[in-house]
Nucleic acid binder design. Structure first.
Length: 492
RNA sequence: CGGGGUGUGGCGCAGUUGGCUAGCGCAUCUGCUUUGGGAGCAGAGGGUCGUGUGUUCGAGUCACAUCACCCCGACCA
């Protein structure tokens, strides 16, 4: 299998279709570009939700839910926003079906045309701001901090599993503030929440930075992003946080009376991460044996596999496992005893490796006699025989070590694939090899576009942490003066 | 929407210049032996070859049409 998978590293979409789909993470549905997420995969998403939700609550954000359908008139109020999303919207035009008069199945009832079409939300700014208008009257109502977990639909020309599905799950936060400074701070605060989550939970090193105007969210004054590097050196935008200024407040007429009683437009932010993060996980950490899940995210952290030749041995091992399980659960770790009787140990080992379970403990007759167990770690695929006595503490430490190791490995890979580049000819060849190039940019959209047209590389971000290098230099393409290097890469 | 490609048991594929009974691997079922890295042996079941029309003594194979899916590009989280 390893050889087969390795030969596909150049084409990750092939890879996770063949590997991870079979690993029960997800499967593609026949519905155009949509994805079925199977229980094991969904458990990973639920874990992401749980961790993020707790962070949001700490920041005073509350969950709410808004309608799936957006009347076309709402949608069209913010000009830039419409321009940004118009080409990829699913539109509801009718509300009823009928039997085909010619007896050929079911057809749309032409009588049931809607007076106003409904847009299936590609994002919820418009409907949320039309609701916020009624919620915000006074400075006392601010800040308003809501988040929504939901699905959205974007009718992309081309889809890719996890990275760009027509329908995807995400969270979108939408906040309203009394001042520009407060909103900008919020946008920055939330991108830091994402960065922290990516680093600590997903073990994914990310670079935080501003998007260039070309790459900004439609309708935003500033877009902050976390950018990750995949194992093929391509960049993946893993989350964004937008400072929307007063654009939506003005379009939807959301004003508040300040302390002096004067009417002012509110300042807004929005921010979101999606099931794309699952794609990021797969592409950043997986190896030839399958998925590698950081313990902080794994739905199952430790799997126990019994090895036996008789019912007596089986019972004895499983009895020991119950003790180990209780010990680990007391330390806060999720444990699964794989007591399936029809499958052999070797098969189970391979299966749990494909699923990315961080630690596997195997125990057989030899171990029973010696009072030991075999502990295997997924990240390095190494094994060690340890005494059952104190195994809980040992595994507890091991899990922390694995979490750190996965991050360190990804970080070392990323740092090994970031380099400065000051020569345009060199840039053109280097960028195709993958990785991030730190280059001077004159700040103009024209230069950025020209570079994109010639190389497909885009400015991933103007970094504000991780790889900041503010220094004087000359634009790699135009030669005009520049004050800071930015991150260029080919992106998914 | 452009450019390629693929449709053959549940899955993955082979099938030569048209030829007689359409094969192979995996999976499935039965039995025995196994069980510390994806088991071995023996046997069994399962396909109107995407669909339609045509050419032919004869079509999985050729022609035309049609449908579906995949890949590459433009768009994007």
């Amino acid at each position: 299998m390893a050889k087969e998978i390795t030969s596909r590293l150049e084409n990750y979409s092939q890879w996770y279709n063949d590997l991870v789909v079979k690993a029960d993470l997800a499967e593609q549905s026949a519905v155009r570009g949509c994805m079925v997420i199977k229980p094991y995969g969904y458990a990973i998403w639920e874990k992401m939700q749980a961790v993020l939700d707790a962070e949001f609550k700490k920041k005073g954000v509350q969950n709410a839910y808004f309608p799936l359908f957006i009347p076309k008139s709402f949608f069209s109020r913010e000009a830039e926003h419409v321009a940004g999303f118009a080409k990829e919207c699913a539109v509801v035009t009718h509300h009823r079906l009928m039997n085909d008069p010619d007896g050929k199945g079911v057809v749309v009832d032409p009588e049931a045309r809607l007076e106003e079409e409904l847009i299936v939300r590609p994002t919820s700014e418009t409907i949320i701001w039309s609701v916020y208008k009624n919620w915000i009257k006074s400075w006392r109502d601010l800040p308003l901090l809501c988040n929504q977990w939901c699905n959205v639909v974007r009718w992309e020309m081309r889809t890719r599993p996890f990275l760009r599905t027509a329908e995807f799950l995400w969270q979108e936060g939408h906040t309203a503030h009394a001042s520009a400074a407060e909103a900008e701070a919020k946008a920055r605060e939330m991108v830091e929440v994402y960065a922290d989550f990516a680093r600590k939970t997903l073990a994914l090193p990310v670079i935080v930075g501003h998007k260039s105007p070309n790459e900004r969210f439609a309708g935003a004054l500033d877009t902050l992003t976390i950018e990750a590097m995949m194992q093929d050196g391509k960049a993946l935008q893993a989350g964004t946080s937008h400072f929307l200024g007063q654009n939506f407040a003005k379009s939807f007429d959301v004003q508040f009376a300040d302390a002096e009683g004067k009417l002012q437009y509110v300042w807004a932010t929005s921010w979101g991460v999606s099931t794309r993060l699952m794609g990021a996980l797969i592409m950043a950490h997986s190896d030839d044996s399958g998925l590698v899940l950081p313990p902080a995210l794994a739905p199952i952290r430790v799997v126990l596999v019994p090895i036996y030749k008789s019912d007596e041995e089986r019972a004895a091992v499983l009895a020991r496992f119950e003790g180990i399980k209780a010990e680990l659960e007391a330390l806060g770790h999720s444990v699964k005893i794989d007591d399936r009787d029809t499958l052999r140990p070797g098969f189970k080992f391979a299966e749990w490796e494909v699923k990315g379970v961080p630690v596997r403990i195997a125990m057989g007759a030899r171990d029973l006699a010696a009072g030991t167990a075999e502990v295997a770690r997924r990240d390095t695929l190494s094994k060690e025989t340890v005494p059952v006595e104190g195994i809980g503490k040992y595994v507890d430490g091991l899990l922390k070590d694995i979490q750190q190791n996965i991050y360190d490995k990804a970080l070392a890979f990323r740092d090994g694939h970031i380099r400065k580049c000051d020569d345009w000819e060199e840039f053109k060849t280097e960028i195709q090899k993958g990785g991030f190039l730190l280059c001077h940019w004159d700040g103009t959209a024209e230069t950025e576009q020209a570079i994109k047209d010639e190389t497909k590389a885009t400015i991933r971000c103007i970094p504000v942490d991780s790889v900041v290098c503010e220094e004087e230099g000359r634009d790699i393409y135009s030669g005009k003066p520049s004050h800071q290097r930015v991150v260029f890469a080919i992106a998914y």
